[in-house]
C-alpha cells in the first residue's frame, strides 16, 4: 500500500514547516527510519524519517517551500514501477489554475497575509483520484443548483475540499465555448407588443431563470443583467417576481436587442447568455466553459430558454 508523506506537526503551535532540504530524491529507495527530508519550524530544524519501506514518489514540495501541517508532500510506494514523477501527486509544486480566486473574492487581507492562504491552499492534502469529490455541504448544494460538475473542477486541478469560493472562481473563469440558437420571434414579440409594461430584458431574465430552475432543479436562482454601459444588476428569482435576496448569479444576461452587436461576453461575468435580435429572430448565444458546465447541460439550458421565447406560455406552466 502506498504510504503518504505529510508535513508533521513538530511544535504545539506550529501550523506550517519549511522544507530545508530533501535527503532523498524522487524515485530513491527508502527504508522505514531513513531520514527523508529536513524541516524547519519556528523553533528548530529536524529530520523527518520514512514511516515505511519503498520508493519516494510524486514529490510535490520543493526545498524552501512552506507547507502547512498535514500537507501531503510525497508518497512512498512499494514498487519501483509505481514511482510517479515529482510534481504529479499533490498540487503543491505547481500552482493550480485558480489559486488566486480566494484572494480575488475576498477583501484584501493585507500584504503580510498574502502568502499564507495561497500556500495553504495549494498544499491541501490530496484525496484519492477517483470517487466522491470532497466538497463542503454548501458548495455541493450550490454546484448542483448551478449545474457545475464537481468532478470536472477536480479535473481542473482545484484543490479539495472544494468550497463555495472555488465555485465562484469556476464561474468567474468564463467561457471559451459558445452555443448559439436562433428562435422564432413571433410569440415573444406579440407578448411585448400586447403589454405596455413588459420590460424585455426583465422577461428574458425571468425566462433564463425559469429555464435554469427547470434544468437544474434549483431552488433559488439569481441572474445578473449586464448592460453595454458596464452596469451590472443582480436580480433574485426574476421568474418569481424578484422575491428573495440576490445571491451569486447563476449566469449573466446581456440583452443586445436594438443594437447591431450580437455578442458581448465579459471574462469577469463567467457563464453569459447574450440575446440579440436579427431578421431571422432572436439570436441566443451562451458563452460557457465546458469544464464547469458540461456540454449536455449547456445544450439543455439553451434549448429550454429558446423554447420559452418561442412559446412564452411555457414560462407560465
Amino acid at each position: 500500500m502506498p504510504h503518504e508523506v505529510r508535513m508533521p506537526q513538530l511544535g504545539m503551535v506550529q501550523d506550517s514547516g519549511v522544507i530545508v532540504a530533501w535527503l532523498k530524491r524522487n524515485g530513491d529507495p527508502v527504508r522505514a527510519g531513513d531520514p527523508v527530508f529536513e524541516v524547519e519550524t519556528d523553533k528548530a530544524t529536524m529530520e523527518v524519517e520514512a514511516a515505511a519501506d519503498g520508493y519516494l514518489s510524486g514529490v510535490t514540495a520543493a526545498e524552501g517551500d512552506d507547507v502547512p501541517v498535514g500537507g501531503l508532500i510525497a508518497m512512498i510506494v512499494e514498487d519501483e514501477g509505481d514511482v510517479e514523477a515529482a510534481g504529479t501527486g499533490a498540487s503543491v509544486a505547481e500552482p493550480v489554475p485558480a489559486p488566486g480566486a480566494h484572494a480575488a473574492s475576498r477583501p484584501d487581507p493585507g500584504p503580510e497575509r498574502q502568502e499564507t492562504p495561497a500556500l495553504a491552499e495549494r498544499a491541501m492534502p490530496e484525496p484519492v483520484a477517483a470517487g466522491r469529490v470532497l466538497a463542503s455541504p454548501k458548495a455541493r448544494r450550490l454546484a448542483t443548483e448551478r449545474g457545475i460538475d464537481l468532478h470536472l473542477l477536480r479535473a481542473q486541478g482545484i484543490a479539495e475540499p472544494i468550497h463555495v469560493a472555488d465555485l465562484d472562481a469556476a464561474i468567474a473563469v468564463g467561457g471559451n465555448s459558445a452555443l448559439s440558437a436562433v428562435v422564432d420571434p413571433t410569440d415573444f414579440d406579440e407578448l411585448l407588443d400586447r403589454s405596455r409594461t413588459a420590460d424585455r430584458t426583465r422577461l428574458l431574465a425571468s425566462f433564463a431563470a425559469g429555464a435554469w430552475r427547470a434544468t437544474f432543479d434549483a431552488s433559488s436562482v439569481s441572474v445578473a443583467i449586464r448592460g453595454l454601459d458596464g452596469s451590472l444588476e443582480i436580480v433574485a428569482n426574476p421568474d418569481r417576481g424578484g422575491v428573495g435576496d440576490p445571491e451569486s448569479p447563476v449566469l449573466t444576461l446581456v440583452d443586445l436587442c436594438g443594437t447591431r452587436i450580437h455578442r458581448y461576453a465579459s471574462a469577469r461575468d463567467g457563464l453569459t447568455l447574450c440575446v440579440a435580435r436579427s431578421a431571422a429572430g432572436y439570436d441566443l448565444l451562451l458563452a460557457f466553459a465546458e469544464a464547469r458546465l458540461p456540454l449536455s447541460n449547456a445544450v439543455a439550458l439553451v434549448e429550454n430558454i429558446a423554447a420559452r421565447i418561442e412559446n412564452p406560455l411555457l414560462q407560465l406552466l
Binding site: H102, T116, P117, A120, E121, M124, P125, P161, A165
Partner: peptide, 16 residues
C-alpha cells in the same frame, strides 16, 4: 481567531 482564519480561507482544521 486562528481557527476562524483557517476555515474562512478554506484550510481544513482537521485533515480531510
Amino acid at each position: 481567531a486562528a481557527n476562524a482564519r483557517a476555515i474562512v480561507r478554506g484550510v481544513p482544521v482537521h485533515a480531510p
